[in-house]
Design a protein around this nucleic acid. Structure first.
Length: 493
RNA sequence: CGGGGUGUAGCACAGUUGGUUAGCGCGCUACGUUCGGGACGUAGAGGUCGGGCGUUCGAGUCGCCUCACCCCGACCA
């Protein structure tokens, strides 16, 4: 197993093979019997749960509340907002009937034609419409605003081509939907939540991201502005890792959601929505993993420290267990999740390799030799470096090492991105360099036509117009027309 | 929907110009020896060769049809 995995190198041409192999070996997920859908296995789900919990805390800290809305959306709701339906119509699963019956010809069951729904129901591809039809009932006065709601849910988009975590037909996510009295407040909300996502990505996932605004063509269907965080994967492709949208009054108008302002005049409310999904799991895998398997940032690792005893018989095991028990308690008291793997049915070498594939940040191995010398062998997953350290006082050392792994994973990813982000001034050079798997900062005239031409000819798209970057004006590399600032181009997932 | 590829045990595969009872490795089960980097020995279980039709004395192998999956495109907040 180890050798099979080690044979994969992350060259761009077999990157997806490497990725699929890793998802399987690390026991994260597998393909389900249902087209384009994925089974998230317990270990993969444990990581998602940690992400969920952290994000949820951050949403609560910014004043949001959780709620839940229906899975099924009446077809008429979706058609209320013209651009929105346009954007999602091509990838919807539709419920048309409500009953099955025995096949008169004996082939199991068939759809009962008598049970056709008067109005078809759409399995939600996103919940703006069902939520805004509800917000109409919840919002009457400026005193009801702002309304800050989040939902943890599954959604379904009938994608033509799927990839584990990155694009599956059904996926888990959270979607925030907010209503505000003013345009400024709604825009600020969208920006604020983008900051929350960026903080989460950088501090917890150890993934550096570029914050910015999408070009008109890449905008969410029905939004006035879409903000994004873009991350670079190890093959140099970009992954859109979270988005927030300023929706203006589009949905308020479509669903007739108004409030009485302080002057007793009705006004349409202003909206934002924002979401991150299990796609973040894909980002996590593709950012840090190496040829030995997954590498998890300590803050999201379900198991942060694994202790593997090395022994010959029951007495030997007992001596080790007695020795490490206080350490386990001490670490747990510090809030560190520890697994003591004394399972008798796997040998130490197997366990070492297995926890490596699963990305456990720190491994301790302790055997007879260590008991005699008062030491323990410690290995950190990110560098694979082993050291023999004194057993006494090791808990504090572990805390430091976990912290150091968290930081250095981020630094490594950041260094890679900086090193592979280039500035280009001519279209010829752009075409050449984009093949290397890089982020390119270049001038663009701001038109969808030029953007489309570049996409057509190079497969690169504008990932975003970054907030925090050089704002020096220039001329478009394709047309020579004026450009306000450089924008970020890359090929993407 | 186009272009390419693959379907043989849980997984990954071999199977010669068609030939008898379909094989290897990993995994699995039992017992024993082991245990500081994915242990070893012995014994064992596990197959309508994706499905259908055809050619033939005889089909995993040849032909036609069909289904499923993978990769590359088209598509994708």
């Amino acid at each position: 197993m180890a050798t099979e995995l080690k044979n994969f190198t992350k060259r761009a041409d077999n990157y997806s093979q490497w990725y699929n192999e890793l998802v399987a070996k690390a026991d994260l997920a597998e393909q389900s019997a249902v087209r384009g859908c994925m089974v998230i296995k317990p270990y993969g789900y444990a990581i998602w749960e940690k992400m969920q919990r952290q994000l949820d805390d951050m949403f609560k800290a910014t004043g949001h509340q959780n709620a839940y809305f229906p899975l099924l959306i009446p077809k008429s709701f979706l058609s209320r907002e013209a651009e929105h339906v346009e954007g999602f119509a091509k990838e919807c699963a539709i419920v048309t009937h409500h009953r099955l019956k025995n096949d008169p010809e004996g082939n199991g069951v068939i759809v009962d034609p008598e049970a056709k729904l008067e109005e078809e129901l759409i399995i939600r591809p996103t919940s703006e419409t069902i939520i805004w039809s509800t917000f109409k009932n919840w919002i009457h006065s400026y005193r009801d605003l702002p309304l800050l709601i989040n939902q943890w849910a599954n959604v379904m988009r009938w994608e033509m081509r799927t990839r584990m975590f990155l694009r599956t037909a059904e996926f888990l996510w959270q979607e925030g939907h907010t209503a505000h009295a003013t345009r400024e407040e709604a825009e600020a909300e969208a920006r604020r939540m983008l900051e929350v996502y960026a903080t989460f990505a950088q501090e917890f996932m150890a993934i550096p991201v570029i914050k910015g605004v999408k070009s008109a063509t890449e905008r969410f269907a029905g939004a006035l502005d879409t903000y994004t965080i873009e991350a670079m994967m190890q093959d140099g492709k970009a992954l859109q890792s979270g988005t927030s949208h300023f929706l203006g009054q589009n949905f308020a108008k479509a669903f007739d959601v108004t409030f009485m302002n302080k002057d007793n005049k009705p006004e349409y409310v202003w909206a934002s929505s924002w979401g991150v999904s299990t796609r973040l799991m894909g980002a996590l895998i593709m950012t840090h993993s190496d040829d030995n398997g997954l590498v998890l940032p300590p803050k999201l690792a379900p198991i942060q420290v694994v202790i593997v005893p090395i022994y010959k018989n029951n007495d030997g095991l007992k001596a080790i267990s007695d020795k490490v028990q206080p350490l386990i308690e001490e670490l747990r008291a510090k809030g560190i999740s520890v697994k003591y793997d004394d399972a008798d049915n796997r040998r130490p070498g197997f366990k070492f390799a297995d926890y490596e594939v699963k990305g456990v940040p720190v491994r301790l191995a302790i055997g007879q030799r260590d008991l005699e010398q008062g030491t323990v062998e410690m290995m950190r997953r990110d560098t694979l470096q082993k050291e023999s350290v004194a057993f006494d006082g090791i808990a504090d050392h572990i805390v430091e090492v976990l912290d150091d792994i968290q930081k250095s994973l981020y630094q490594k990813a950041l260094d890679r991105r900086i090193q592979r982000t280039i500035t280009v001034d001519t279209y010829d050079e752009f075409k050449k360099r984009i093949e290397e798997g890089v982020f390119i900062m270049a001038h663009w005239d701001g038109t969808p036509e030029t953007e489309a031409k570049i996409k057509e000819e190079t497969k690169a798209t504008i990932r975003c117009i970054p907030f925090d970057s050089d704002k020096t004006p220039g001329v478009c590399m394709v047309t020579g027309k004026p450009s306000a600032q450089r924008v970020l181009f890359a090929r993407s997932y």
